Amino acid sequence: MPKWNDLSVAFNTLREIDVAAIRTEAERPLTIVCVGAVGVCQEIATRLERGTQRYGPIGPSPIQLASLATIISDELRSVDLIIIGLERTTRLSARELTTIDQLAALALPTVVVVWGTALPADAGPLHPRVAHARLLVVPDPMAPDVDEQLASAILDRLPAELHLAAARRLPGLRATVARQLINNVSFTNASYVLATALPAQIPIFNVPFAAADILVLTKNQAILVYRLALAYGAPPDIRERLREVLPVIGGAFIWRQLARSLVGLIPIWGVAPKVAIAYAGTYTTGMAAWRWFTEGEIIDQARLKELGREALALGRARAADLIAQARRTGAVQVDRWQRWGEALRSRFRRKEK
Rank of each mutant, 00 (worst) to 15 (best):
A121T: 09
G281Y: 06
S261N: 09
D213L: 10
P236M: 01
E96H: 06
I17K: 01
A319R: 04
A45L: 10
A121N: 09
A278F: 11
I268R: 11
L312G: 02
A121S: 09
Q102M: 07
R15H: 05
K219T: 10
E161A: 07
P273F: 08
L119F: 11
E161C: 08
V112F: 13
N12R: 14
I72G: 02
D18L: 05
A317T: 01
W340Q: 07
A69T: 08
I71K: 07
I249M: 01
R91N: 13
F209G: 01
A20K: 15
E240K: 11
R129W: 07
L262H: 00
E244D: 15
A210I: 07
I72V: 11
R347H: 08
E161Q: 14
R28V: 05
W292D: 01
G308E: 05
W292T: 01
L304I: 05
A160H: 14
I268L: 13
I249E: 01
R336I: 04
A197P: 00
I83N: 09
T329N: 14
R291I: 03
W290V: 00
L258S: 02
A288F: 08
L215S: 11
A131W: 02
R327S: 00
T90Y: 07
E87I: 05
D122I: 02
L246Y: 00
L106G: 05
I214E: 14
L258D: 06
G286T: 05
R174H: 06
R95W: 00
Q64R: 15
I63K: 05
A69V: 03
L86I: 14
A313D: 05
A195T: 08
G36F: 03
Y232T: 03
S61V: 05
L108F: 05
T99R: 08
D18T: 03
V114S: 13
Q149E: 09
A37Q: 07
S191P: 05
I82H: 04
R134L: 02
I277W: 14
W4L: 14
L217I: 13
N12S: 13
A195C: 04
T110V: 03
E75S: 10
R243K: 12
L164K: 00
R129T: 12
S73H: 02
A104H: 10
R327G: 00
A21D: 14
K353D: 13
A107L: 06
P125W: 04
T117F: 04
T294I: 06
I84K: 04
N206D: 15
A133R: 03
E27C: 01
R327I: 10
R91I: 12
E87Q: 12
I214F: 03
L150Y: 01
E244M: 09
I58W: 12
Y226I: 03
I84L: 11
C34W: 07
P128S: 11
R347W: 12
K219D: 08
L150W: 02
A160V: 12
V112L: 13
T99S: 04
N189C: 14
W340E: 13
A197W: 09
P203N: 08
E297D: 12
A121V: 12
A66H: 06
A319P: 00
K353T: 11
I238D: 00
L136G: 03
R350H: 06
L135T: 02
E342D: 15
F11S: 00
R260G: 04
N220S: 06
A69K: 05
S61D: 09
D140I: 04
A10H: 01
L7R: 05
T294K: 15
Y192W: 14
I204K: 09
T13V: 13
N189A: 08
E43Y: 01
A66S: 14
